[in-house]
Structure formats: structure tokens, C-alpha cells
Design a protein around this nucleic acid. Structure first.
Lengths: 206, 206, 206, 206
DNA sequence: CATGAATGAGTTTTCATTCAT
DNA sequence: CATGAATGAAAACTCATTCAT
């Protein structure tokens, strides 16, 4: 993303490193305790720096939240870019959920289900978060539509635009709903969930 | 609701009225600001009473949260009891979303999508909330399976148990995902969403 | 104290009974938690009545405290009236301490060591308590001087007034100090303490 | 006090100064109003700082109380270390009482009679305070026994251990009782009290 | 006479944010 | 650039006291 053409000064590099350290710490704290309950003090400690320093890189606690929301948006977009079929999408998401349960406590820079929920909730109240999230949704929408199209292409089906839209909606709801249900029922059998999703995808694309 | 057989004393009636007043206020505040950001002071003001009085009816702020979570669980269960087909379910949910947008600011004693999200997020951190939510999920699971069975019965299909389970998973994810997406993209065309859901339901049940 | 000449009306009797109930409850609560930490609510519950009713019999929380201080003053005076020798005094006090440890939780209407301490501390801050306590001290002073005189008389010694005063001071300090030390070191051997006090009394009166 | 060997960082020095400021303020407030009635707000104001800052140096209000109790324990121990005779002990205590009355409002970092009482009362309810106080008592017990022994040695008397114990008990009760009585009767003639105590000491050691 | 619902001021404690060093 | 001491506003919760019933 950062081509050779843009020579980052040492100061800029340092700033970027610091911002990353803060965001990594914040992601963990936010996912653990929520945007509100996670204090700047906790983030500073997790980042191994003083509270004051955080304010050199982010004007606000809100600014940190915004940055993380954006980070997740980008991550989600990049993750979807490499996906060529519905099956692959289901695999990606289910893999995330499985890995999440394994190494609890560490969180994913590109896409974290708990943060995803936290962000959605926050969007209800914070207009800025809502705006970023809205953009994210548009982008995800396109990405998912592309997945549908690629999948159809690969299996030799021709879909008109209306069919693409409809299947995109369905796919989106399925995946998001799967995440939500996984959170609401941690004892859920992930293998069975995966099989069900696959089955629905197959049915929908027939 | 209050048959002659249940002799509620005046004190008990009063207590019930007050609890209801508090819960109504709290539901609004929680949906508007979230469980954490909504202060007891704000709830008290919304309920038109002093902060101290709230503590006569609820030992804790947490107790209020728990009461509301339970209220929503019950409401969700009751709402599903009357549903006989997937179409009816989609209608119920979409109706909620449409009505919600119309009279923003008022919240639903039986089931509110924003609160639903807030509760799911809170369950990540509060073990008590998680427990109530888990129970709720089991109950919803049964209710949805019944919907699937009734639907199949009405349309003369015979489904084995594995098929019922699979369709229940799909239905559940679809509906929850629809709510989530509606929250994330408020500009979404609800009519189109409704049509897509109906189409998926029809496809899945064929 | 209440001679036949004063016919108490039924209302007055009831009032007296109620006041007694409240004071009994308050004594327990105060000794358990201290004047400040003991709430009117706790006292009301211990007395088996409503909070409001307490205010029919006492204008204030402070009034309850004052009543109890006075009660203890009177009890102390009456307890000393029957004492004819230093040995008897030591026995009285040590008996109190021993019994106190045995049935912890119940408190003595006539004199309770913990309340005694609590009251002394409170006198530091509340002028009314200080006044009652001051009166109490004058009265106790006379009572103790009489004990000294009776003791000397019984053992055939003649003491001039200065000697009486001096021994009274000593006796008073010894007894109060014994109580204080017993509170500060609950593991203290009461039998040994008793023997030491007796020995000092004997020495002092030789 | 701060020899060259102890390299306190500037931060540590500052922390120590602040803790001292807080403890000084707290001692005053506690002695004036009691542990419970003295609010953190009052302490902060007396210390000339914000309420929040107090929590940087003490985790709790209880922590402040504990620190003060410990401070007094140490002070009491150090004060007794330099005492070689019963007369000197009486002089020390009476001097404290006289000085206390003179400059009311200021309290003694090493040993304050009102705080001593407050602490004893609190020990009745706070297990931690009770524990520190118990340790203090053991230490004072040894210190007083040593005073008795030194005194006997100086006056050429030989005391067996039982006699030492007995006199220690007596001395302890006398001194504590004197403080208690001085509090309960502020009009008391301190000169007379001093003479009486001296007389008893002389009698006891004959 | 008795209740207990209601209030409002007060308590301890936390935290985002600033700023002197 | 970095620190962490300091602040002030707010949070949850308690409690003495009043008053309608």
C-alpha cells in the first residue's frame, strides 16, 4: 500500500509505529471490556506507554475508536478481496470463529467478531462511527456481490443483476447472523454451523 | 392479566407499577446510550423519580439490566409463539424494523432490535447476562424449529430431524443477520430486504 | 424511680415501651457498627418497626444517641451504688467483660464496654454527648469515692480527703484502662488481668 | 533522615511528600470528625488537593486509615523507646495531654490520644485495624515491661518475672485510663492527675 | 398510631483530559 | 518526544428525614 514513491520520514515512521502500538492495545481492551468500560489508563498500560502520550497520537478516546473501526473496515475489505466462492467465505468466517475461541485474549487486526459487534452497537450512538460503518457496508456489499459473481462464473451459471443482489443479501445476513449466534451461544457446535451454512449456500446457488 | 384469583395488595401493585416505570425508562436510556453510558441519574429522570427511589425497587444497576434482558427473552418467546410459517416470521421481524424507524425513541417492551444487540454485546462481559441470554437462545431455538415444522406441515412436506435442524440454523442466522445489517446500514431498502428473505425462505423450503 | 404517685396513662406506657424497643435495637446496632455506620433503617429493622415510627419517639438519630448515653450513665451509676469495696468493683467489671465475650451480639442496658468506648469517642465531636458524659463522670467520681471510703471503713483505715481523691483517681484509671486494653487485645488473659487489678488495689489501700 | 546511601528518585520523593500531606490532613480530619464522618472530600480540601489525587497515593479510604494506624503504632513504639522510668512515662503522657489542649486542632504524627481512641473503636469493626492494633499492643507491652525493669534496676530492686508482668499490667491500665478520663472530663485538673499517677507508681514499686 | 414510599444531599471512587517538567 | 501528576466532572450507591395514606 505504501509505495516506494512516498518516503516516510523517520518521525512519520515512528508516529506510525506508535499509533499501531496504541491501536493494538486498544483493540484488546475494547474487545475485553467494551468501548466505554475500557479506560485510557488500561490502554496505556497495555501499550506500555504513559496516558499522556496517547494524546499525542490521538486527540480523543473517540478518535481511537474511529481508527479501530476504520482498521476493521479495511481488514474486512482486504480479507474479502481474496475470496472467490461462497464456500471460501464460509471457511474464512468459520476459521476466524474457531481460532478466536482457541487463543482467547488476542484479537485480530483485520477482523474481530466481538469488536464487530461492539462497533455495530456503538454506531447506534456515535454518528462518526455510524458513518465509517456505513462506508464499510457499501464496500462489503460490493465485495460480496463480487464473490457471488465469481462463484457463479466458476460454476458456469449466469446470474442477472437482480439475482446477484438477492443472493448477496442472503449471504450477508447468513454470515453476520452466524457470527451473532456464535456470540450468543458459545456452546454452539461450529462444525454443524459450518455444514448448515455450506448447505444453504449450495441450495441458494442452484 | 390480573384475574380475581390473584389478590395483589395495594403495595404490591404499586411496586409493580414503579418497577414498570423504571424498566420503561431504562429500556429507553439503554437503547439510546448503551448499558454503560446510561446513568442511573438519566434513568431516574426519564422515569420521573429520584435516583434513590430506584434502589428501592432494584438492588443494582445490574439488576435493572438483568430484568430487561429477561423481559426481552420473554417477549421474544411470546412473539414467536404465534408464528406459524417462515413468511409470518419474516413479516413479524420486518414489521418491527419498519415500525422502529417510524417512531424512533420509543422502545418495545417485548422485543427491541437495538436492545437485542446491546444485550448480546453485554453478554460478552457479564456472566449473568450471558446465562439469561443462553437460556433465551435455547428457547428461541425450539420456537424456530417449531415454526419450521409447522411450515413444512402446512405445505405438505415431510422433514426429518436433521433437515429441521439445518433449516432452523439457516433461518435463525438469516433473521439475526437481517437485523444486524439493518442497524449497520439504516438507509437499506427494507422492502427489498423483505423480498430477499422471503425468496431465500422459499428456496430453502423447496 | 417512678413512684405510685405518678399514674402513667396507657399512651405514656406505650410510648415508654416503644422507646425501650428502639433503644434496645439501637444499642445493638451502635455497638456492632458504630454510631455513624448504624443506619436508622438497620435500627428500625432490629426493632421490628418502620423507619418512620422511630421519628415519633425520637426527633433525631442524635436524640437516640443521647438517650443511650444517658441510659448508660444511669446504668453505671446504679451498678456502682451496690458496690462496697474495690474487690467488688473489680469483680463487677471483670464479670462484665467475661460475660460480654460469652454472648457476643447482645448488649447490656446498664453498661456495655464497647458502647462506653463509642460514646467517649463521640463526646469528642458532639457537644451534647460530651455534656451528658461530663455529668456522668462527676457522678461516677462520687460513686467511686464512696466505694473507696466504704472499703477503708470496713478495713478499719482512716483516710483523709486527699488520700481518698488520690485513690479514686487511681481506681478510675485502672478500671477504665483495663476495659480499654481488653478491647485492644481480645486475646488477653482475663483471669490474670483480674489478679493484677486486685493486687494493685490491695497495694494501694495498704 | 535521608542519608546519602538512600538514593530516592525525585518521583519517590514527591510521592512521599504527597503521602505525608494526605496523612497529615487525614489525621486532623479523623481526629476532628472520626474515621467514618471524615469524608475524602474533607481530607482533600485539608490537604489542598483534589479528591481524585488522593487515590493516586492510597487505593482506598481504608488504606489511609491503615496507614495512620500504623504510623501511630510506630510513633508510640519510638516514644516509649527513650523512656527509662515510670516517672518519665507519666511525664511523657501528661506532657502530651497538656500540649494537646494548648494547640487544639493540630495533631501528633507520633501519638495522638484522640486518634488512639478512634483507632481502638475502629478495631472493634475493621479486622485489619484490629490486626495492626494487636501487633502494636504486643510491642507496647514489651516496651512497658522494659520500662518497669529499667526502673527497678535503677532503684536497686530485684523483680521476678511475675512481678514485672503484674506491674506492667497496672502501669498500662493506669496510663490508658488516664487518657480516657482526660477525654471524658476535659475540665480535669491535669496537675492533680499527674501527682496521683506518680504516687501510684511510687507505691506500686515499693 | 403506624407505614414505607419518596427525596435530595452526601459518600466513595473512576476517568478522560491537560500540562509542567 | 515522553511522562505521570493533577484536575474536575461524573458515576453508583446510601441514608437521614419527611409525609401522604
Amino acid at each position: 500500500m505504501n509505495l516506494a514513491a512516498s518516503p516516510l520520514s523517520k518521525a512519520e515512521q515512528r508516529a506510525h509505529v506508535q499509533r499501531t502500538r496504541i491501536l493494538d492495545a486498544a483493540r484488546t481492551c475494547f474487545a475485553e471490556r467494551g468501548f466505554h468500560a475500557a479506560s485510557i489508563g488500561a490502554i496505556a498500560e497495555a501499550a506500555g506507554m504513559s496516558q499522556g502520550l496517547i494524546y499525542r497520537y490521538f486527540t480523543n478516546k473517540a478518535a481511537i475508536v474511529h481508527a479501530i473501526v476504520d482498521e476493521q473496515r479495511q481488514g474486512r475489505h482486504e480479507a474479502l478481496a481474496g475470496i472467490a466462492s461462497c464456500h471460501a467465505l464460509v471457511d474464512l468466517v468459520m476459521g476466524k470463529l474457531e481460532r478466536w475461541r482457541a487463543r482467547s485474549g488476542t484479537f485480530d487486526r483485520e477482523f474481530d467478531p466481538i469488536l464487530f459487534l461492539e462497533i455495530t452497537t456503538e454506531a447506534t450512538r456515535d454518528a462518526d462511527v455510524a458513518a465509517v460503518l456505513y462506508d464499510s457496508e457499501q464496500s462489503v456489499w460490493c465485495d460480496l456481490s463480487d464473490v457471488i459473481r465469481r462463484d457463479a462464473l466458476a460454476s458456469g451459471k449466469a446470474l442477472d443483476e437482480a439475482q446477484v443482489q438477492q443472493r448477496t443479501v442472503a449471504l450477508r445476513c447468513l454470515v453476520d447472523g452466524a457470527i451473532l449466534n456464535w456470540i450468543r451461544d458459545p456452546s454452539m457446535d461450529l462444525q454443524q454451523l459450518r455444514r448448515s451454512l455450506i448447505a444453504v449456500c449450495d441450495t441458494l446457488l442452484t
